[in-house]
């Protein structure tokens, strides 16, 4: 006997996934608290003002915000039952996500190359842990989007794939919300 998914069971799945996101929020809150405590402990190394580049961070923020909006467009396309539009929107989301991650990794590697790795000071440990954890989530989201694409391309917009798209959109919007907090607390208040 195959398991038949109903609207009720999908509603429960969405709620369960939302609950996971809330526990992830607590994880990020503890990383933010750690960063807030450690950010002044530069141990003779650079402070945020010395190493953060405003235009690069603004670009990252706009890229991620746009990708969050494009996921919304993918949802709208799914409701209109336009499979190719959904696929294009998810591909565009992935391209923007890859652009964001590449920029962030370039930022990280130039810091490490300049000798400002996580080992240098409490500030840099907190910075790499917080921003790196967000980047890791983005990376996992990209793999997820790839698998989602495969499912939609193969089976079309079935109920199961609609549910997968909903969960992915929640995850991706959530990561953009976390990024606003990083953008504000770490970067803007760091360079002001």
């Amino acid at each position: 006997m195959t398991h038949v998914r109903t609207i009720e069971s999908d509603t429960k799945t969405v709620f369960g996934f939302w609950t996971y996101l809330m526990t992830d929020l607590v994880l990020f809150a503890s990383l933010f608290a750690m960063y807030a405590v450690l950010h002044a402990n530069t141990a003779g190394g650079p402070s945020g003002r010395d190493i953060f580049s405003g235009p690069v961070v603004l670009a990252e923020t706009l890229i991620l915000l746009t990708s969050s909006f494009v996921v919304g467009l993918a949802m709208l396309a799914a409701r209109a039952h336009k499979k190719m539009l959904v696929i294009s929107a998810v591909v565009l989301t992935m391209i923007l996500g890859i652009g964001f991650l590449a920029t962030e990794l370039a930022e990280f590697s130039s810091l490490v190359a300049a000798g400002h790795s996580w080992a240098q000071s409490g500030f840099l440990s907190g910075y790499f842990a917080l921003v790196g954890t967000h980047g890791l989530h983005i990376f996992i989201g990209l793999i997820w989007a790839l698998m989602l694409l495969e499912h939609i391309a193969h089976n079309g917009l079935t109920q199961s794939n609609m549910r997968k798209l909903v969960l992915f959109s929640l995850f991706w919007h959530f990561l953009d919300i976390i990024w606003i907090c990083i953008f504000t607390l770490v970067y803007l208040l760091g360079i002001i």
């Binding site: 999908d10 949802m75 549910r163």
Partner: peptide, 25 residues
């Protein structure tokens, strides 16, 4: 029903969602 699925599982409100996404952006 594909066209009401997001509303049925409680992820979307009943009103116009396109405007909501554009406004949010």
């Amino acid at each position: 029903n594909v066209h009401t699925y997001f509303e049925d599982i409680g992820i979307w409100p009943k009103d116009n969602v396109l405007i909501s996404y554009v406004m949010g952006f």
